[in-house]
Design a binder for these strands. Structure first.
Lengths: 252, 252
DNA sequence: CAATAACGTGCAGAAACGTGCAAAAACAAG
DNA sequence: CTTGTTTTTGCACGTTTCTGCACGTTATTG
C-alpha cells in the first residue's frame, strides 16, 4: 500500500466510522504505530482531522452542519429557489444575487450540476463551498452589511467585465406600475449592472414581494425574462403581472 | 474507546437523558468510576456541564449559551485571535486571511473598533457583516473550496492594488527550517501577495501548527513581523522559532 | 448520630506520544 | 544500467497522557 493510499484510507475510515484508533489500524495494515501516528500528525497539520490521544476524530462537527445545510428547504422561498435551480443548465455561467432566497437557490442546485456561479454575496459563496462540482467566482467590493453583499464602485466595475447566461435577481418589491424595486440606491445599481450583463434575468419573487414597492427601481418589469414565485402568491397580484405582459413561473 | 470520544459521549448523554450517573456510566463502559469522575470534573471546569454529587446535569441554558460562545473563545485559536485583535488599531486597514483562526479573529475584534478589514474570505466577510463599525472590503476571485477563500489570478490582481497596515496570515505549517507553509500552491501565492502589500504580517499560528510543515512555502519566517500563538504551544517549537530570530507573541 | 457512598488527591505502571536516527525502498539523473 | 538523492519505515528512547489504586475527606442517608 502506498503512503498516499493509506492517508486516503484513514480519511475514509474517519468518515465511515467516526474515529480512527492508531493501534488498531497499525495492526490491520501490519505497520508500526509510529507510521500511523506520523500519518495522523500530517493529516492533522493539513486540517483534515482532529488528532486525539490514541487516534483521531473528524476534523470538526461540520458533518452535522452539512446535514442541516442540505435539508431540503420548505416555505415560499425554497419553492422559488427550486423553480430557479431547475432553470440552470449544465455548462452555463449564472449570477446569483444576495438574500435569503438566493441562498436557498445556492442550496437547491443539483449536486451533480457542472456550471459556474458568479456572485457578489459571500453568503452564497459560503453555501456553494460545499457543492462538489459547481465552480464559484466571487465578485468583491465594499460589503453592504444590510444585505450582506459586495457593493460600491469596485463591485460595479467587476460586474461590468462579466457576462452570464442568467442572473437570478433578488428584490424587495414587484409591482406592475413601480416595477422591480429595492431599498438601497447603490444596491439597485449593482443589480441593474447584473441585468445588463445577463442574457436572461429571473426575479426571485416569493409571494410577499408581489404588489410591494420599495424606494429605488432596479429595472422595469419589461426588462426581465420572468418572475419566479410560489404557489401561495396572491392571485390578484399574479394576474396583474400577467396582464402587464410579465411571464410568471411557479404558480398556476 | 478514545478518551476524547468518551467526553463527547458524556455530553451527548447529557443532552439526550438530561443527566449522567457516574457509577452507571463507568459500569456501562467497563471503566473505573475514577476515570468518569475525572472526565466530569474536566468538562465541568470547561463549563460544559454542571457537576453534582453522583454525576452531572446539563449546564443551565444561559450558561450553556455563554459556554458555547466561551468554548469557542477559550480554544487555542481563539487565544491567537485575541492576541491578533489586540494588534488592530483604530483607523487602520488590515487584511484577514481565511480559515478558522481568521474567523475567530473577525469575531474577536472589539465591538467599537473603527477600522477597515479587507479579506478574500467570504466566511470572514459574513462574520463581520454583524459588526457595528468595521468597514469590510471583499476581494473577489475564484473560490478555492478547500479553504473557502477567493484565489486565482482575479484575487491576486485585486490584492496587488491594495495596501494594508497589517496582514493576518493563516498557514498550516510553521517550521524553523521550512518556514511558513500551506497545502496549496495557488493559495500560497495569494498569501504571499498579501504579505507584499502589508506593512506588517502576523502569523495566526496556534500551537499545533508549530513544528509542522506543508508542501508550499508562503514566505520564510524572516519575512513576517511575528508569530501569534497560544499558551499551550509546544515549548521546544517556540524556543526554536525564537532561536531563529522570530518574534513569538501569546506565549511566555 | 453512625454507616455508607462519593469525592478529590497523589502515586505508579502502562500505553501512547514525538524526536532523532539509520536502513531500506523509491526516485531521478546521467 | 549505476549512482546519488529523497522518501519511507521501524527502532530506540525520553516525555507525556491515561488509568486504576489507596486513602483521607466530604456528602448523603437511615
Amino acid at each position: 500500500m502506498l503512503a498516499a493510499q493509506r492517508k486516503d484510507l484513514i480519511l475514509t475510515t474517519l468518515r465511515d466510522q467516526g474515529r480512527v484508533v492508531a493501534k488498531d489500524l497499525a495492526a490491520e495494515l501490519d505497520l508500526s504505530e509510529d507510521t500511523i501516528r506520523r500519518d495522523l500528525r500530517e493529516l492533522a497539520a493539513e486540517g483534515h482531522l482532529h488528532r486525539v490521544h490514541g487516534g483521531a476524530l473528524p476534523a470538526s462537527p461540520a458533518v452535522a452542519d452539512f446535514t442541516a445545510r442540505t435539508t431540503i428547504g420548505t416555505g415560499a422561498k425554497a419553492e422559488v429557489a427550486r423553480t430557479a435551480a431547475a432553470l440552470v443548465r449544465p455548462g452555463q455561467t449564472v449570477a446569483i444575487d444576495g438574500g435569503t432566497t438566493a441562498r436557498e437557490l445556492a442550496r437547491a442546485l443539483p449536486a451533480d450540476l457542472r456550471a459556474t456561479v458568479v456572485t457578489h454575496s459571500p453568503t452564497v459563496a459560503v453555501e456553494l463551498a460545499v457543492h462538489p462540482t459547481v465552480e464559484v467566482i466571487i465578485v468583491g467590493g465594499r460589503l453592504f452589511k444590510h444585505s450582506v453583499v459586495a457593493a460600491g464602485a469596485l463591485a460595479h466595475e467587476a460586474i461590468g467585465r462579466v457576462s452570464v447566461d442568467a442572473f437570478f435577481l433578488g428584490v424587495t418589491g414587484i409591482h406592475p406600475a413601480a416595477g422591480l424595486t429595492t431599498g438601497d440606491a447603490d444596491e439597485a445599481a449593482i443589480k441593474r449592472a447584473w441585468t445588463e450583463r445577463a442574457a436572461e434575468t429571473y426575479v426571485l419573487g416569493s409571494g410577499e414581494k408581489i404588489g410591494a414597492a420599495s424606494a429605488f427601481e432596479v429595472v422595469p418589469l419589461a426588462a426581465v425574462t420572468a418572475v419566479l414565485t410560489d404557489a401561495a402568491a396572491p392571485a390578484r397580484g399574479v394576474a396583474e403581472l400577467r396582464a402587464a405582459g410579465v411571464r410568471v413561473l411557479g404558480v398556476s
